[in-house]
């Protein structure tokens, strides 16, 4: 009931292809849909959320097509990107109304639980028009979660949030994912996805450029060297030794230690330890300096 499946999904607007032949399966846990602005993330989320029909291919949520199927919202919660909510309502009224629209048996309890979950009980009786951006996002999440759905879609949920609000939202999504729900969120901010999600779907120019654990994806990209920062008891000796190894394509001695470029992530890590022991060099720090999503992203964009 909590699996999202896309098979050969294409969506075009006139002559513009927004999403091109995307296939993916998303199960329980937190998954980040990553890509630059205009990559097709929102288009994908809108198709999954039942607000857009694919031009070609199939989208199923819990085995059912979401298009023209309002019943899908019994198991799906949607947090749209746009900030607009019914600003004339209070937070409680908004969430309570959503609970009534879902015909929940205990509207009051569901409303209180959803508001407590996003930690907005203190401001729940204020009009939404007085809320900050972060509070609006959280009340939207509360409304989307009031019927306890197995799947939650969030379009750019961290937009406009300050760092503290981001952390709160990340913790909340972490928690929801750990409960076995399928949480799919889109973002163009690499750190958000890196911090929150082990699994990513990278969308570039409407195509699925990569899928899976982001570090594993990075390791698969063998055509581009990995960069490591290394500090040791004898950087000069270690650098000279490393240069002789086939897995190492370049070494630079800097004030902060060595910058090593390796063509094979696994082989370099294994050989470094062996060489250090052989030459009696003490390793102080080993930092994969280009393991951030930014480098993954830049590589994918360039290719």
């Amino acid at each position: 009931m909590s699996t999202i499946e896309l098979a050969g999904v294409t969506r075009w607007y006139g002559t513009v292809v927004a999403v091109n032949d995307v296939s993916m399966t998303i199960g329980p846990g937190v998954t980040g849909l990553l890509g630059p602005n205009g990559a097709g993330k929102s288009t994908l989320l809108h198709m999954i959320g039942g607000f857009l029909a694919p031009s070609r291919g199939t989208v199923t949520v819990g085995g059912a097509s979401p298009w023209h199927n309002p019943d899908i919202y019994r198991t799906l919660g949607l947090v749209p990107e746009r900030e607009s909510v019914y600003a004339a309502l209070t937070g409680t009224e908004f969430v309570r109304s959503t609970a009534k629209l879902h015909k929940l048996p205990d509207v009051g309890a569901a409303t209180a639980r959803a508001i407590a979950m996003v930690d907005l009980a203190g401001a729940a009786d204020r009009r939404i028009s007085t809320y900050s951006k972060g509070m609006r996002q959280r009340i939207k999440v509360a409304a989307a979660m009031v019927h306890d759905p197995a799947i939650l879609l969030l379009d750019e949920p961290f937009n406009g949030m300050d760092p503290r609000q981001r952390l709160q939202m990340m913790d909340l999504l972490d928690k929801l994912g750990a409960q076995g729900r399928t949480i799919l969120f889109s973002s163009h901010i690499l750190e958000e996805v890196e911090r929150l999600s082990g699994t990513i779907q990278v969308v570039v120019a409407g195509r699925l450029a990569a899928s899976g654990d982001f570090r594993a994806i990075r390791r698969l990209m063998t055509s581009r060297p990995h960069v490591f920062g290394v500090r040791s008891s004898d950087d000069r000796l270690l650098g000279a030794t490393l240069l002789g190894r086939p897995a190492v394509t370049g070494v630079e001695l800097t004030a902060k230690g060595l910058q090593v470029r390796a063509s094979d992530y696994g082989a370099f890590c294994r050989e470094l330890a062996v060489l250090a022991r052989k030459h009696d060099i003490r390793l102080l720090e080993l930092l994969p300096s280009d393991e951030s999503l930014e480098s993954v992203f830049a590589y994918l964009l360039a290719s």
């Binding site: 799906l76 746009r82 909510v85 989307a144």
Partner: peptide
């Protein structure tokens, strides 16, 4: 226009 309708439509209520 302002997108608020999505909150109403993302429920099982018939359109």
């Amino acid at each position: 226009d302002d997108g608020a309708i999505v909150h109403l439509l993302a429920t099982p209520v018939r359109r």
